[in-house]
Nucleic acid binder design. Structure first.
Lengths: 343, 343
DNA sequence: CTGAAAGCGCTTACAG
DNA sequence: CTGAAAGCGCTTACAG
């Protein structure tokens, strides 16, 4: 490979010092002679010179790069939020490095270490529930860090969250208004104490109470993705099966749809269905799916904005804030009550 | 923020020189005393020292990072291929920086420049059709570069491609066997001369010829995504509308499904449908969708493997190779011929 | 208005 | 077996 052009080549060619070329690159034109500037500009064009960002970063102790670690990229939520973060960063000349922890704290830890050794200027994380010490160390060092989607007990930093209780409430209310009272909620594993899942269950219970509906523990199912279908079998073989299901997220939804399809259970006829998270095919599904939409763009944008703010004002250490965002309901179908209503 | 620990801190604390610590970090234990090694190991643990990758990269002139630029991340193909690339790279201790050109050559150019200034060791690209000069410069410098999914005229480098003609042939044959002869093909814009689109049209024509079916230019529709529905209206208002449609990719499919849904056209009843690209809901759609699946994992893996090979053997300059991958057909429904057959 | 010098945190030939 | 020195390609106070 041909040798890369360096600042020294430019300096020699232009007949000035490296310092002056550097001033030019950093747009410190205050005291620079018109001719000098023109000369440098010309040589840079001629040589097609591109500054070495690595060298600059080493000296400046800032890489203009942030890391983003998401717990699981398979959630549409993650990809949408990432897109929003990238947009904000691009507008501000910041690069992003995206990492997918794959729901694995060990992987998350490796990415954390890699990102830090790459000297990133800040970090946005949808955390797994591990690595408390590492995060707390970063927080105590005042390292720019923003959490997204989840709160982990014992970690106190700025966090952008959905109003998860409201999401459940919207779902319960919509189903109730369509005549459902036997409402189940199915979501991926609860073991990890992950905020959205826990809060959505909590919101579900509160919404039922408000409607004076008895909470039935058998209607609350949490399991890892591969076991969801098993849980659905449990639900449908109850002596009093639910007439409607709330799906906790998009991946859970796919399991439910696959299960009902395989078993000839008709959505909106045999069972009401509503899901948290928008999916691409909601409107063209038979029947169209009623969904609870997260403002992913707003949430990602906010997280990025907070982070950039923190990076720019490292000295000031504000009290951590939690930013809550409202979900919204898109009624499309799939929630009708057709069977007998027992009341 | 607290001062970061450097190699010097470790050296001082361990009572050895920076050189020796560096030897340790690079696992050059050949001549290192047992005690020295233990001492350094202990201090690194104690101080929780993480080497500064930026400094190392500057000296080594290698960043162990590759860039990946995809033309449009909204295609499921892109995200799947990216995942495969990341897997290979992770296994080899290589980081990846993902960029989405958003079908915009200007954006692609900016990403190219940014990535190069970040001193990436290699690059995998699903190219737009611009930036010929930049790519050719890289190729002439023997910079490790692999193209994916598309060939751009005038660019000669290793490329991983689908056998696009075969994809069309599979589609035509499947529809024909289900009684269709009036087969349309709809895909996103042809303006850009993008390989898959062009080859798929070509393969479509050849497959029809082989079946002795007259090619009807009115059955061939290419337009950018936002105009697809308009093209569908044109198709369906023909005096002899097609009885089946081949969708060129997943995003086109969404437009077709949205259009048929809105207009009460029943897939598999009023119109046969087959699409290139697998979609998450294919199996649970009503009716289940017949798809032509690309071996995205294999293709991404191959691209990454070729690239890593190139990075490791920079001296040898092989003749560029094109690697073709076979699509496969998953028959699920949506292709039945119900209307009158004119023959 | 411009340049010489020091230094960012590493690695690596080389000396001993 | 270990260390002093040079250098990767930049930036930045400071001198003039």
């Amino acid at each position: 490979m041909t040798k890369r052009i360096t600042i020294e080549d430019v300096a020699n060619q232009a007949g000035v010092s490296k310092s002056t070329v550097s001033q030019y690159l950093n747009e410190r034109f205050d005291y620079m002679g018109e001719k000098t500037r023109m000369k440098i500009e010309k040589v840079i064009k001629e040589l097609d010179y591109q500054p070495n960002v690595i060298a600059r970063s080493l000296k400046k102790k800032s890489t203009s790069t942030i890391g983003v670690i998401v717990a699981n990229i398979l959630h549409a939520y993650s990809t949408q939020v990432i897109r929003a973060i990238e947009n904000v960063c691009n507008e501000n000349g910041i690069s992003t490095i995206i990492c997918n922890a794959d729901d694995d704290s060990e992987k998350e830890k490796n990415y954390l270490e890699t990102l830090l050794s790459k000297q990133i200027d800040g970090l946005i994380v949808i955390p797994t529930s591990g690595n408390l010490e590492m995060y707390n160390k970063l927080i105590s060092e005042n390292f720019p860090l923003v959490f997204l989607d989840r709160i982990v007990d014992g970690l106190d930093s700025d966090t952008v969250l959905l109003d998860n209780k409201k999401a459940s409430e919207l779902a319960v209310d919509c189903l109730y208004e369509n005549g459902h009272e036997k409402i189940a909620i199915v979501t991926t594993s609860l073991i990890d104490n992950v905020t959205p899942r826990v809060e959505r269950i909590q919101g579900y219970k509160e919404a039922l109470k408000k409607r004076h509906i008895q909470i039935n523990q058998e209607y609350i199912k949490g399991a890892e993705l591969s076991l969801i279908k098993q849980k659905l079998t449990e639900l449908f073989t109850l002596s009093e099966p639910p007439t409607a299901i709330i799906s906790g997220n998009d991946l859970t939804l796919m399991e439910i749809l696959s299960y009902t399809f395989d078993n000839g259970i008709k959505i909106g006829k045999d069972i009401g269905l509503i899901t948290v998270d928008e999916v691409s095919f909601a409107a063209i599904h038979t029947p169209p799916l009623t969904t609870i939409v997260q403002p992913t763009i707003d949430m990602g944008t906010k997280a990025a904005e907070i982070l950039l703010e923190k990076i720019n004002n490292k000295q000031t250490k504000n009290k951590p804030t939690i930013y809550r965002y409202d979900p919204s309901l898109i009624v499309r179908g799939s929630v009708e009550r057709v069977g007998d209503r027992i009341d």
